[in-house]
Amino acid sequence: MTQPSEKEALARAAVGAPGPQRRTLGRRVRSTVSAYGFLGPAMALVFVFFIAPGILLLILSFTDLSSANFNDPWNIIGFANFERLFTDPFFPKILRNTVFYVFTTLILFNLGLALVLALVTTSIPRRTGFFFRLVWLLPRLTPSVVYILMWRRIGQADPYGIYNQLFPEVLGASGGNLFLGGSPWTFVILTNGFIGASFGMIIFTSALESIPKDLLTAAKVDGASMWRIIRDIKLPLIKWPLLFIATYQTLSLLTSFEYILLLTDGGPGLFTTEVWALTAYKRAFASYAGNSQWAFGATWAIVLVTVALLLAAVYVKLFKFNELIEEPRIENL
């Protein structure tokens, strides 16, 4: 069998006709082996740090393991922990809080502010843009506990909190306790948002910088306004980074709790800022009188992991991520 000429291949591609099956078995095996070889280390990490703990969590969630009985053999109690979770009087509130926290932070900061920052810093002189992006990255370079302590010193009640000391009566707050005491959600979302925005900012900046300049120049020559350029050229061309950040940050926010733990510990009041991941942590590891409920904490965690996986599947389907990772058509010739 003679190999088809380059001209023939191009012609087939032009009419969308399939090419002859040229890959031999040996090449396919080699290709598969090398693919798995490259993927191997990452897959091993995923197995050790995600799949194996996930399996352990699942097993643990069917037991009654706690500080009070962890030296005994594991006692399997079926779905009792799941029943307890879904009938918890505060389950609806914690669920609402989680949805509110994840999507408010995501839309306003991790996507919204990140996009604004990327658009602004790529529209000003390059060195100035770089400087501002660097400033926005500072929280990422700061250990999270230090970052939160700095925010606490801003938002604490008078006289410790700088804000409440300087502006005790702004926005009608009483007792000089605006942020941490008076508007804890504002504070939690701002704190998470400012650090969360920097990740999207870097990805969006990189995507925006890679847009061919001639497209933008042509649009300007045609008289397009700045808004039209953003709406009709820049945003469509950074569609994939936008969808990726939306997905990644949703999952990240869903499982993040350390900032809330350090800022408000889920309070003040009755589960005011308590989110799902924080509940899982508290159940498993935080107990004033010393009885940590590890199995029940694992139940909260495994349900959260399941929700996250389902959400990831929905995102992949909704955003058609298979189109992003499909082989370029030229490779199929």
Binding site: S174, G182, D265, G269
Partner: peptide
Amino acid sequence: LETRLDGD
């Protein structure tokens, strides 16, 4: 203060 149990 209604917010006194803020853990601070």
